[in-house]
Design a protein around this nucleic acid. Structure first.
Lengths: 214, 214
DNA sequence: GAGTGTGAAAACATTCACAGCT
DNA sequence: AGCTGTGAATGTTTTCACACTC
């Protein structure tokens, strides 16, 4: 089992998609073709083959890919077998949703801490964890060697939480607050803006107003 | 005010990002340069100029862009001024988070209905709306001319909800359930998988196991 | 026959670098 | 002097098409 650490970014973005496909097909199916994956993932089949070829020679000509072998290899490439630990900061509706979200555990991410500043939330039990105040963050991060900090706070405090996470030695942030965080050297930051997809969708909607223009 | 309906997809994806930038800068600032936008959005400044040039000749050489004029034009291009209405199906933690999410309203999307199958949730008041059973969906969709259906249900029922939305005449779906929905002719579907970004992040994390491989 | 893996072509996207305007 | 808008160059991604293997 080898890891190719030089996969094109466009391909890296699609690997989780393929993983989802493999999970979704009939569990009894042992093998699958690029054509079938392409159909479920809604991409071109040559694309699928090219993407998977970066992970090594995994398929069998004339036959297809072995589902579990393929899954293992994608998980290996994405580093999902390393068992990353994460904490969530901001336990409102979104933070709670993330804490309960089965997809994280299923993908090898373990949530080991929930934090909030609101005294009403501190002490609450949630998804098998107790919500803790911010000043206990450093201890938890050290104890569990936390790799990822997930920000689900209101936008006003997100930047300061990012600073706190940096102090705790965290090297990666997944930010759900609708704010563009400042760059921090040595820190990987990815932001998910829940309204962004809706805005993109809007561009491709049939618009009454377009009939007037053009 | 003209709409250029032929903007490259890569640019469309960045327009919401620029909008976020503009919202985030000091409200007092009347003008902004491509260099400043690039810095906040963490992209190349030539990229910003090229992207914005698709919207028309908006800047002033030697000066920069007028913030409010730029914002208006981006909103116009994205169709955010058309006042889309949306409904949310599945009022768990994620659905509640989405219902309360200020970013939707701010971007011109109006949530006009919340739906769930759970009798315990039906009747609940949330973000100024009452949670309704599924069979009232069609009526609400017709009444408010709903354009977008947001799915925030567990994965098992997501596909059948998508069918229901189709029956209600909805033409666009934003799916938060971790499942790849089947294609429906004439239907725009975008999926947001909350764990996907975490998986991409994982690929770029420093891995202990990589020291062994290679 | 069926389906992978991959050169080569085509399409798309980014970046440079600078003329042109304020 | 400062900053846009954009040709031209470069880099990346997608797709075609087919030799090759089972």
């Amino acid at each position: 089992m080898k890891i190719n650490s030089n996969i094109p970014p466009a391909t890296v973005k699609r690997l989780p998609l393929y993983l989802q496909c493999l999970e979704q097909i009939d569990k009894a199916t042992g093998g699958i073709s690029s054509k079938k994956i392409a159909e479920i993932a809604k991409v071109n089949d040559a694309q699928v083959r090219r993407d998977l070829s970066y992970l090594g020679t995994l398929g069998t000509r004339g036959v297809g890919y072995d589902v579990s072998k393929l899954r293992n290899q994608i998980e290996l490439e994405l580093g999902l077998v390393d068992g990353w630990t994460a904490i969530i900061v901001g336990i409102g509706n979104l933070g709670s949703a993330l804490a309960h979200y089965g997809g994280f555990k299923e993908r090898g991410f373990k949530i080991v801490g929930l934090f909030d500043t609101d005294p009403k939330k501190i002490g609450k039990q949630l998804a098998g964890l107790t919500v803790k105040p911010l000043h206990e963050m450093k201890e938890i991060c050290a104890k569990y060697n936390v790799a990822i900090g997930i920000i689900a706070t209101p936008e006003k405090v997100a930047e300061s939480i990012a600073d706190d996470l940096e102090v705790c030695g965290i090297k990666s942030i997944l930010n759900f607050a609708p704010v563009l965080l400042k760059n921090k050297p040595g820190m990987q930051i990815r932001s998910v803006d829940l309204s962004q997809e809706l805005q993109i969708l809007s561009y491709y909607l049939e618009r009454p107003s377009l009939k007037i223009a053009k």
